[in-house]
Design a protein around this nucleic acid. Structure first.
Lengths: 332, 332
DNA sequence: GTGAAAGCGCTAACAC
DNA sequence: GTGTTAGCGCTTTCAC
């Protein structure tokens, strides 16, 4: 049978209140009483029941993380970093995978916010802020991660998308490129939108070809880059920018198969996933944009705990910057 | 304020019992009563409180997964597959990352099994079964994943380790290799042990060099393969077997940097992570062992739910087999 | 076909 | 310095 706090109290010859207070150090208990209590606990092998406790206190010590694609290295590393921060602060992490599917996101937010977690980290795949907002109970702690919305109702931790793209286009222009294509992620995401708009602006500013056919969108899942590449190569691009890590590795492989060498036959700039081994292999053939994933995760963990512990703090926005690794720097 | 079941009952003019039964379809309720109840629920925006419910019923509808390294593609894909199965069956997944650290595993098992989850999936990093076993409350549903122990006390889902290694050594021998080295994972793990013992046996059976210096161990985390490789190359190996995906990619990169080409200058066999893009890039230069990660995850989810729902079923063991991709098959 | 009420295990206000 | 006890929101037995 399950051993409860009353069993411990009985054996130790004290009240349940005293047991509770000894366990939680929540009021003074004399040394000798403490000792009796701990002895009884050990003897019975008592462990406080977490679900009774969270029911009583209303705190679950648990955070939910709505992720678009767990098996993606970018999010995998982020999850690791979040989990690391949370567990160091006594919280647990519940993962929900949406596979970039809005219905799944909807369902998961609903389930998790209904008393399962104290707060929610969301890397949303929603196209519509209102649809997301409707799911969230009033006052429920939420932090948006990696992807945000116009309406600044919730705190967010993102990475600057404009700057690295703008910079990369200018670099390609400086090296003589005339027709630079771009492969973006899902068009509905804030990150994609920012990147594409940076592209448009840079292409205009640098006097490069401005054609809609040079802008392609993948879905950032397995095998979505090839079709985009075919279309881009047909346009005789002399430069390509790839906006996501998985698609970047697919690009590299596909070009390799076609015998097209980055840095020689075509200029390539890619978002690469943190610590992906591709970085190493292609570091001297293409420019890389490396997002600070671990910092993203840490900051997200930090913010959600803040909001949980102090829900009335004003909305907070953090924008981190990516590292830009130019391959020219590596040639001597 | 939080709206509770009594608020709904009051507004609908029925008892809390009726509300509960309507929500859960747990006894007959007349159509008109149902209607009143649902109307009240909608009006108040009522959501049953998950933590009250799990406190009352003792079921959390949550499974914990103790993972050695979340950011590793192998486990990332596995987590995805587990989460997929669980969420389809109304369960949530709590992730705990141990970073191959036994103390962290200990702490996490203790925390999670104390009323936070209904069952535990463990890819254990423990060297000692007793140490693991001590942490688990009697009768608590546990399924071991990917790594198991001599004592068959818990159900397990693993991948056959002996066969692919044995086979690969024989293949290398058949191609004329004389000195085949191996890079194993953490020596304390069952998977490593099985692989190394397959290696020893194959090397003996095939008449290859049997030297302890040909057996090296990495820790399967970032940057652990290089040192092993240096030592192995010094031994003038003509073949190398790498027992883990991350170390395999590091191997490929390191050899590339040193100008050593797999399949030409040296024979290479690697465990590669499912769907890692390296597969594509090196498919015609080295043999690959691909583990059925998704099936592993699905089977693990299936088994843990079985044990949760029927704790008295006998212990179950499943051993899946890896795919072997020989690169010779690709040359015409 | 529905209601009343006990009680899951714990915390915390109140009392002494 | 410690004990008594109400009650968190729900499910479920028992009763009608």
């Amino acid at each position: 049978m399950k051993v409860t706090i009353s069993d411990v109290a009985r054996l130790a010859g004290v009240s349940t209140a005293t047991v509770s207070h000894t366990i939680n150090s929540t009021r003074y208990v004399s040394e000798e009483t403490k000792e009796k209590v701990f002895k009884a606990i050990a003897e019975l092998g008592y462990t406080p029941d977490a679900s009774a406790r969270s029911f009583r206190t209303g705190k679950k010590k648990t955070v939910g993380f709505i992720v678009p694609d767990i098996s993606n290295k970018f999010f995998g590393t982020m999850i690791e970093s979040v989990e690391n921060y949370l567990s160091a602060h006594g919280y647990h992490l519940i993962i929900a995978n949406t596979k970039e599917n809005m219905e799944r996101e909807e369902k998961n937010i609903r389930l998790l916010s209904a008393g399962l977690v104290d707060g929610l980290l969301i890397a949303s795949t929603m196209d519509d802020f209102a649809r997301l907002d409707n799911l969230i109970p009033a006052g429920f702690p939420v932090v948006l991660v990696d992807r945000t919305f116009e309406a600044k109702k919730y705190s967010s931790i993102c990475v600057s998308n404009f700057q690295p793209i703008y910079r990369s286009i200018c670099r390609l222009a400086g090296k003589g490129a005339k027709r630079v294509g771009i492969i973006g992620g899902l068009p509905r995401l804030s990150s994609t939108e920012e990147r594409i708009s940076a592209y448009r602006q840079a292409v205009a500013d640098c006097g490069l070809a401005q054609e809609e056919a040079l802008i392609r969108y993948g879905d950032s899942m397995e095998n979505s880059a090839q079709a985009c590449l075919d279309e881009l190569l047909e346009q005789n691009c002399d430069g390509i920018v790839v906006c996501q890590g998985l698609m970047a590795s697919e690009t590299v492989i596909y070009l390799h198969k076609k015998g097209i060498q980055p840095g020689k036959d075509i200029e390539l700039v890619s978002f690469v996933d943190y610590d992906s081994n591709f970085n190493e292999l292609y570091a001297n053939q293409m420019d890389m944009i490396v997002q600070p994933v671990e910092e993203l995760g840490r900051a997200a963990g930090e913010q959600i705990l803040r909001r949980i512990e102090n829900p009335d703090e004003p909305v907070f926005e953090k924008v981190l910057t990516s590292a830009y690794r130019s391959y020219d720097a590596l040639k001597r």
